[in-house]
C-alpha cells in the first residue's frame, strides 16, 4: 500500500472494500519462530492446512506445496497437528534475523 492515503473525495462511497485485500498486508514479521516443511516426510494429510489460523499453508490440487511466510505468524499449530512419526514433516525453527519475506 502506498503511504499516500486517499482523501474523502476519492474514497469509494460507504465503508466498503473488495474482499480479500488483507492478503496485501504482511504479518510474516510477527514471527519469532517459523515452521519449516520437510516435503520428503509429508504425507499430505492436510491437517496443517485445515488447522492454520492464518491460511498460510499453501496447497495445490489436494497437496501441500509450501508455507506462505508473508502471512504465517509462527504460532506452531501446524507443527503440533502434524501426525507424521517419528519425525514430523513440519518443525519450528528460530526465525533468523532479516529472513522474513516482505
Amino acid at each position: 500500500m502506498s503511504e499516500v492515503k486517499p482523501g474523502w473525495k476519492t474514497l469509494p462511497e460507504g465503508d466498503i472494500v473488495k474482499g480479500g485485500t488483507a492478503a496485501e498486508f504482511k504479518t510474516g514479521d510477527w514471527r519469532s519462530e517459523r515452521p519449516v516443511w520437510f516435503p520428503e516426510r509429508c504425507i499430505h494429510c492436510m491437517f496443517c492446512w485445515i488447522s492454520c489460523p492464518d491460511s498460510s499453508i499453501v496447497v495445490k490440487d489436494g497437496k501441500m506445496t509450501g508455507i506462505d511466510y508473508d502471512h504465517c505468524k509462527g504460532c506452531g499449530i501446524c507443527v503440533k497437528e502434524c501426525p507424521v512419526k517419528p519425525n514430523k514433516a513440519l518443525e519450528m525453527k528460530p526465525e533468523r534475523e532479516g529472513s522474513c519475506q516482505r
Binding site: A22, E24, T27, P53, D54, D70, H71, C72, K73, C75
Partner: peptide
Amino acid sequence: LTGGHRMCPGC
C-alpha cells in the same frame, strides 16, 4: 479467509 488479518498468532 486470506492471511494478513491481525488475529493473534494461534488464535
